[in-house]
Amino acid sequence: MKEKLTKITITVIMFIIGLVFLMPFLWMLSASLKSEIEVFAYPIQWIPNEWRWDNYAQVWSGDFPLYYWNSIKVTLATTFISVTVSTMAAYGFSKIQFTGRNIIFLLVLATFMIPAQAILVPQFMLYMYLDLFDTHLGLILLNSFSVLGTFMLRQFFVGIHDDYIASAKIDGAGQFTIFRKVAVPLVLPAISTYAILRFIWTWNDYQGPLIFLRSDHLSTIQVGIARFTSMSGEIYSLIMAGTMSAILPLLIIFFIGQKYVLEGIALGGVKG
């Protein structure tokens, strides 16, 4: 009984700490529904006097739908390509025997250490030369070859017993059939985890579109809200409605897939 009481007390305390921890989000949500005068009113009025849904309508009447659409396109394409490329590579690096496999794997793995910013200049030169600068294709390719994804999925493929694959081989199946019919279904939960993470990371990517896109009509939502913030002349309620709109899809996806995401992070220790 005493133990139970302690546990309840600690839960309540943790709940309060959690609320403080989430304060920036709650503040964002609350400010996005207020009139401009109320935003900085003190003491903080968490529930707006008058709900200004109009803030959202105003933000969305501008270029937001276009930025959103660009983000959806780029994110879905990147996620699809990256998951395919990483799953294939992970399978090759774990379940097929061939000369030079480990050396190549180590080489690919070593590139993980390199901060993306360190190679921005040469990448920029390369993109100019290949006509990929200021295109969605270029932006998509930029995030499509993930060392982390390959590494994480490889961990899961290593966990599959070789017998499954050998038995399919005896049945006369080629590597591609084995990959599709045997290996991929076995690691499907891991693939979903990586797909969700890749979606989140790509949606949040700011550096890529900042440097490799120039035209306004190609901008993604992250560049869009940063630009909106600097141009809207400090109308904070609108800015908060904008940022809220930018993170909302992620929150939804995270709540739906949170089990996959948290388990995947715990198992693979992956970090964007």
Binding site: T99, S144, F145, Q175
Partner: peptide, 25 residues
């Protein structure tokens, strides 16, 4: 045959990493 299959599976990743990371370095 295995060796070729292996190279085929890893080639997109290896080519992408080479062009976008190793050559830029």
């Amino acid at each position: 045959k295995e060796t070729w299959a292996g190279y085929l599976f890893i080639s997109p990743m290896v080519i992408g990493t080479t062009v976008l990371v190793i050559i830029p370095i």
